[in-house]
């Protein structure tokens, strides 16, 4: 199996505060990893490090073959990120947001209508500026962007937040499709009952380090680390 993520004693700081205090994590490509932990455990910081948005202060790390101690700008094009914030232009329609981001990533925009339809953004909702949509609808648009971009690495920060039951099922099926297509998925969550069944690997974080690792409930998973 090809390594997608390899972190050894990874340390990252925010100002002078160590948000990651020596993380060890190894994931193969195509793995779905759930990251659990209390507020302030370092879950979001881990995702930002993996996306190349936060610098690796000490330790070693590589993501999709890119060395995190060097310039990570080349890594970003292979990463899809769903953070706490919406990350969309409020005045633009869902289709216009996706069109800008897909073209910026130098991808084919012809898949945008299917991606929006896949996440249930249709009709009147699709013709409404993103800023006027509900929080759940906005997160569906972000999910559509990931579906359209098909990145090699999916990083999702509490993807089920603000979503109703139907939308939560949708997230699960989209993540399953992504993993089946060979993408690596790392998702943080405060809802273990929802996310563990979707995952091959579950890690728990506390104090900026990984404290526990065990197999998830995804069919066919057999994490032996």
């Amino acid at each position: 199996m090809v390594s997608a993520i390899s972190l050894q004693s990874a340390v990252a700081v925010a100002g002078r505060f160590p948000v990651l205090a020596g993380v060890d994590l190894n994931l193969d490509e195509g793995t779905v990893c759930a990251v659990l932990g209390a507020n302030g455990a370092g879950k979001t910081s881990l995702l930002r490090l993996l996306a190349g948005l936060t610098a690796l202060e000490r330790g070693a790390g590589s993501v999709l073959g890119a060395d995190l101690t060097k310039n990570t700008s080349g890594l970003r094009a292979n990463v899809g990120f769903m953070g706490h914030g919406v990350g969309l232009y409020e005045e633009l329609l869902p289709r216009e947001n996706l069109a800008f981001m897909i073209k910026a990533a130098r991808l084919d925009p012809s898949g945008i209508p299917d991606a929006l339809d896949r996440v249930g953004i249709r009709g009147r909702v699709a013709a409404t500026p993103v800023g006027q949509l509900s929080a759940g609808q906005q997160r569906r648009v972000v999910l559509a962007l990931l579906v359209a971009r098909r990145p090699r690495l999916w990083l999702l920060d509490e993807p089920h937040a603000s979503l109703d039951a139907q939308a939560r099922d949708l997230v699960g099926s989209v993540l399953e499709e992504a993993a089946a297509g060979g993408a690596t998925v790392v998702a943080t969550s405060h809802e273990p009952d929802i996310v563990i069944p979707l995952a091959d690997v579950v890690v728990t974080m506390a104090g900026g380090v990984v404290t526990e690792r065990y197999a998830g409930g995804r069919m066919g998973s057999s994490d032996v680390s």
Partner: peptide, 15 residues
């Protein structure tokens, strides 16, 4: 340029 989240999303596009 939008909110901090939007600016970060744009950074990930490789522009």
């Amino acid at each position: 340029e939008g909110s901090p989240a939007t600016r970060e999303a744009a950074r990930l596009l490789g522009l």
